[in-house]
Amino acid sequence: MSEPLVLGIESTCDETAAALVQGNRLLSNVVASSMNEHARYGGVIPEIASRAHAESFVPVVSKALKDADMDLSQVDAIAVSAGPGLAGCLAVGVSGAKALAWAAKKPLYGINHVIGHIAVTQLQFGPFPQNALALIVSGGHTSLLHVDDLARSVQVVGTTLDDAAGECFDKIARLLGFPYPGGPHIDRHARLGDPHAIAVPQGLTKGRAGAEHPYDFSFSGVKTAVARWVERRQQAGLDIPVDDVCASLAGSVATVLSRKAMAACHRFDTDTLIVGGGFSANSQLRGKLQEFGDQEGVKVRIPKINLCTDNGAMVAMLGVNLVQAGLPPSAPDFSIDSAMPMDRILM
């Protein structure tokens, strides 16, 4: 087969997205976000997101095909995120994708959204090396994965024991009064502050806990420490040095993630770290990973900002890997799995 052409469809959270990828070339990439509708509630409201998916599904798919000057009959396969994500949102994308696949007589792959986040880096950097390590960081996930074969074999090396990194940022952002989503605000203020201004713990890096969980993460301590510090300042009638708070938080989180990722690279003797997920747009993390990678001789592949957030390209790209590996498509009655485990690539 020449390079497979795959339509990827994404609807796990607040983005309805579709893209066409051929081989590792991105032909079109359309994203409709319902984020503005959630902003006033301070977080994603599943029912509102799901309604938006139902409205946007066909227009987004249609535009992705049109932008690539393609017709549904020309694609080799369709891929759709089957999990993890919000059940009501997944149900819309998967139902629509099943209908498209049946009507157009195309194989359908129900894929793992999180694995898509790392697959998408191939659009920039080409195929994965045989033995790669991946760091997934998003609002819902913080994990280190060992990837032997992106289509068939992914193992979880470490994961967060409590909050995800993005979640920790969101909570501090709310405490500081930033509008939703708060991550970009913390990022911007952090660039202006002193990362050493506040002593912030680095979870699971020291002592027995650190030794027992060398590749796991914990961010609840960071969150609590920052929140207490801010509250004490308020009670003492002092103003809050917002830039320093943000810089200390971001610096601590970025350092822990980078240090543990590098340690895992050494442990698995790999020279390539793949990074993915919405939180990989964070500039402190991007900077730290590059810095540590240069020091340690590890090539760090971080996607462009517009490919960090949820999109259809990541789904299509993983679909290309599955087609190229010759894997059979998902069964017609496959389910969604809102808690799809990270080592499951395909439904």
Binding site: E47, H53, V58, L100
Partner: peptide
């Protein structure tokens, strides 16, 4: 009620789009 209704409508819209 919400979720099931949406599954049917998005299915119908996708079928109509594709055919």
């Amino acid at each position: 009620p919400f979720t099931g209704l949406r599954a049917g409508i998005v299915t119908a819209k996708a079928l109509a789009f594709a055919t």
